[in-house]
Write a protein that binds this DNA or RNA. Structure first.
Length: 204
DNA sequence: TACTAGATCGGCT
DNA sequence: GCCGATCTAGTAG
């Protein structure tokens, strides 16, 4: 059973590393979302990096706008955007202020208060273990499970509402590096990372 | 199991 | 107007 240790919260230095490095270092870390004092949590098992240079798929590619403003914050903030009118996706902002880089969290493995995550996602209390994987094996699914919406855009990850703590270190050999999915531009860039053989990564 | 369309909104051309 | 860093339900095979 996972024991939440608030003191292992990641410090600002963690986010200051180069974006591609942070994307890999995030694997195995634990994303915490506190609602009414109750922590929901999952192990980060899949990420994608979005850079500021030569990356057409990145929201920051065409410069700053109202929507992507948070992406241009200095590192250590949560960037949440809405997609297809109905879903939300969350990113960890990296880089210095006005740079515009982030790591999309694509999948987590639920470990704490899974029943509440299930209720957030499916709107019912009929929690069954078979549904565990589909709780958060995709960027929009994990946001739904953790009740993350546009309201959470700009949240400081060093605060107490949404933050990330230490978890298991993933050996380099267990990190799979592939191209990103679900996009049409800059598809060829090897910016997607996930934990090998993990059951909770996204479907595609 | 595999493919397709529909949902639904805001940002950008 | 168009289309997206998605997901789901529906249909066909």
């Amino acid at each position: 059973m996972f024991e939440l240790n608030v003191h292992s919260k990641l410090k600002l230095n963690f986010y200051k590393e180069p974006t591609l490095k942070v994307a890999q270092n995030l694997l195995g870390k634990v994303l915490i979302r506190v609602i009414s004092g109750i922590p929901l949590a999952g192990i980060i098992v899949e990420t994608e990096a979005y850079l500021s240079q030569n990356d057409e798929a990145s929201h920051s590619f065409n410069g700053k706008s109202k929507r992507n403003n948070t992406m241009f914050n200095s590192c250590g903030y949560l960037y949440v955007y809405q997609i297809y009118g109905i879903h939300y996706c969350c990113n960890v902002v990296t880089g210095k202020e006005n740079v515009g880089e982030a790591v999309l969290i694509r999948a987590i493995e639920p470990i704490l208060n899974k029943e509440i995550m299930h209720k957030n996602r499916f709107n019912n209390n009929n929690f069954i273990p078979e549904k565990l994987i589909s709780l958060s094996n995709g960027p929009a699914k994990l946001c739904k499970s953790l009740a993350i919406t546009k309201d959470d855009d700009g949240t400081n990850l060093l605060g107490n509402d949404i933050y990330i703590v230490e978890g298991n270190t993933i050996p380099k050999g267990k990190i799979v590096i592939t191209n990103r999915i679900g996009i049409n531009k800059s598809k060829e860039l090897p910016f997607r990372f996930y934990i090998e053989d993990n059951k909770f990564i996204s479907n595609k």
